[in-house]
Design a binder for these strands. Sequence first.
DNA 1: AGAATTAAAGAGTTTAAACTCTTTTATTCG
DNA 2: CGAATAAAAGAGTTTAAACTCTTTAATTCT
Lengths: 143, 143
Amino acid sequence: MFSKTFGYALRAATFVAQHSANDKKLSLLEIAQGLDIPRHFLGKIMQDLVRNGILDSTKGPSGGFFANSRTLDTFLLDILKITDGQLLFDQCALNIKRCDAQHPCPLHDDFAVCRDGMLRVLALKTLGTLANEVSNGTAFLVR
Amino acid sequence: MFSKTFGYALRAATFVAQHSANDKKLSLLEIAQGLDIPRHFLGKIMQDLVRNGILDSTKGPSGGFFANSRTLDTFLLDILKITDGQLLFDQCALNIKRCDAQHPCPLHDDFAVCRDGMLRVLALKTLGTLANEVSNGTAFLVR
DNA sequence: AGAATTAAAGAGTTTAAACTCTTTTATTCG
DNA sequence: CGAATAAAAGAGTTTAAACTCTTTAATTCT
């Protein structure tokens, strides 16, 4: 349903959001080790998040990734669009070329319920929501 | 969520189920052309369906694929197990190693609703159900 | 200024799913 | 029996996602 890249991006962004409350920066290594994500692969993903304004970064000693003013209010859907593009949206469960309400595949309605349910969640929850859940101990980002 | 192979398998099996009411056999070529599926790739998939007893086949002139006594009562879930194995079942939306009710990822509950909804459908509907929908004109297998 | 540090960027390799091509085996029919 | 037909089987290639390695650019600190 989602790419691994989306999972990595979401966990890393939440991790940064959660830790940079007090102006702290996290290095790529700290994030990769803290979340058990391949370091260099995560590097590419973080680049993309910074380029899209989800996070900020600085180079050099004591540099790293940190939240900006928009970070906590970023919807999970924004991240999905960055990592997975239109993937989830124009997708038929059975991959037939035309599949819509007028010309449905046999799973069209059932899959629509499932997919739209997830999209609704992704359009409601923000990185701030997740960061709180993780800080609460009601959700986990690793292991 | 599902592999393309699952989509091909499901559509092909439904197609055969729908057409072999009156003892008719369908050749690989007829199925592949009728459903716009790559011929040789579909060959592998049909092999697997026959091996697992979902359909029957005979070689030689006027050979092909046809429904057996179990075909119409095959649950879609049975086909998913053949094509995708455990893929959907032991899967966390964010791919963290341990993700369960006691130690959930931030999307655990939402994804569980979505996934279990699909699984319930797949465990209820059979190839017979789909064949009827297609014959009714309420669902489509192609285009 | 120079060395150290860290993200950014570039250029790969690996892996698995998707897909193709060829050969073999079984069956039918003249 | 021999030719034709169609599935089964084997052995590939292609593609995209996932992942790795190396070099470059920016910043800090002495």
